[in-house]
Simulated assay, not measured.
Amino acid sequence: MRALSLPQARKLVLLSQCISTKSLKGSAYSETLNVFERLGYVQIDTISVVQRAHHHTLWSRNPRYQVAHLDQLVADKKVFEYWSHAASYLPMRDYRFSLPRKTAFKLGQQSHWYKKDHKLMADVLKRIESEGPLMAKDFVSKSHKTNGWGSKPTKQALETLFMQGDLMIAERKNFHKVYDLTQRVLPNDVDASIPTEQEYGQFLVLSYLRAHGFGNLAEITYLLKNIKTLASQALNMLLESGDIKRVIINESVYFACCDALFLLDKRLNKKQVHILSPFDNLLIQRKRTQSIFNFKYLLECYVPAAKRQFGYFCLPVLWNGKLVARADCKVDKQTNTLNVIHLFIEPSVNEKETFFTALEEKLQAFAQFNQCNHYAIQKVSSRTV
């Protein structure tokens, strides 16, 4: 059993997550697709004080990323919307592995947050089948009665049909979902066969380990219902076949793909700053982030203003292979300025001048990504332990 130091573990995570690596050759669009297929999913979020999380996460891996890439990938049927641990875009390559969850919803083996109204669901399907792709607002009636087409139940019917696989999201218009029949959205060559339990379990394990470098059962099954036994069985089978091995990190046992450990021989660009989304794949599991990066992080937009320690939308900042700062950011559209309302520096930052030089370069790029002409740091604080 191989032991990895924390610096080695962090390096393995960052390289597996496509962070602090050299840009790939090829078009910016193809690199964006490659990022999707490496990460396995990109979480969708509605908060827009800076560029939305799904765009931000892709830009963090691909400096040439353009917001239009995502719509184009959906139009080209290279990615699709569904659920990972939360609402996400996923690579179409993995479509068949969304089917076990959809089937469970459809058969009532997994509960949905909405109660099924079968008659309303049938009516919704019939309209979309005859009229083509529709948004929730297309069902609004002039009367706006609570039991009419524009009522909350109609949106629930659409979402239920989406979660159980009858509908897919064909596109988004001004961030509103456009629903269509699944058979009209799927590409002709997609594999739509339902995986066996063994295939599904191994997919869950291997996709997580490849994207994150290493993991344990709790991390692999994070916010996924009814699959711990399946994932545990897959871990045992993959250990027996030699596809994965155990590693020790910080006195805890994890699993890693055997070939992933060769990533440790690659170079990590430590001097480049990365400004990350709160919903970034790297740190969405806060307990893991604290354990591996010694960085306790809480997104405080859900915390009452008076109780916030760092601000409404603090973005974690990566540098020198560590999470070293938090930047509470907000775009001012009237002045085209990316405001860093408050920058908090961790005590682990020793070469502050070098760090600030790299940070300012990245902030300028981040401002441009947010369609701002410039940025302004309004306040800086150094945290004490």
Score class of each variant (00 low, 15 high):
273 V>P: 02
191 D>F: 00
77 K>I: 03
20 S>I: 02
60 S>D: 13
51 Q>W: 08
183 Q>K: 15
61 R>C: 13
364 Q>N: 14
335 T>I: 12
202 Q>I: 02
78 K>R: 11
214 F>P: 08
222 Y>D: 09
208 Y>M: 08
323 L>R: 03
3 A>D: 14
21 T>A: 00
63 P>E: 04
21 T>S: 05
311 G>M: 06
102 K>P: 03
16 S>K: 00
11 K>A: 05
192 A>F: 03
94 D>P: 02
205 V>I: 04
365 A>P: 08
22 K>N: 06
115 K>P: 06
254 Y>M: 07
95 Y>M: 02
383 R>I: 14
108 G>P: 02
230 L>R: 15
383 R>G: 01
356 F>M: 14
47 I>K: 03
195 P>I: 02
85 H>A: 04
179 Y>F: 14
3 A>F: 14
5 S>Q: 08
29 Y>M: 00
367 A>F: 08
260 A>P: 05
134 L>T: 11
79 V>M: 10
262 F>R: 09
383 R>S: 03
24 L>N: 09
378 Q>H: 13
152 K>L: 11
67 V>W: 12
43 Q>V: 01
50 V>S: 01
187 P>E: 04
214 F>K: 13
234 A>Y: 02
359 L>F: 15
156 Q>R: 12
332 D>P: 07
208 Y>V: 05
369 F>W: 04
293 F>L: 03
124 V>L: 04
199 E>A: 06
40 G>T: 04
286 R>F: 07
158 L>W: 12
356 F>W: 04
374 H>A: 15
266 K>H: 09
137 K>T: 15
76 D>G: 11
324 V>C: 10
277 S>V: 08
175 F>R: 11
4 L>N: 00
369 F>R: 00
189 D>T: 13
180 D>N: 08
9 A>D: 08
144 H>C: 01
331 V>G: 00
177 K>H: 10
181 L>N: 07
311 G>C: 09
242 G>L: 01
344 F>H: 13
300 E>G: 07
205 V>A: 13
250 N>Y: 00
320 N>I: 04
106 K>Q: 15
4 L>C: 02
93 R>Q: 13
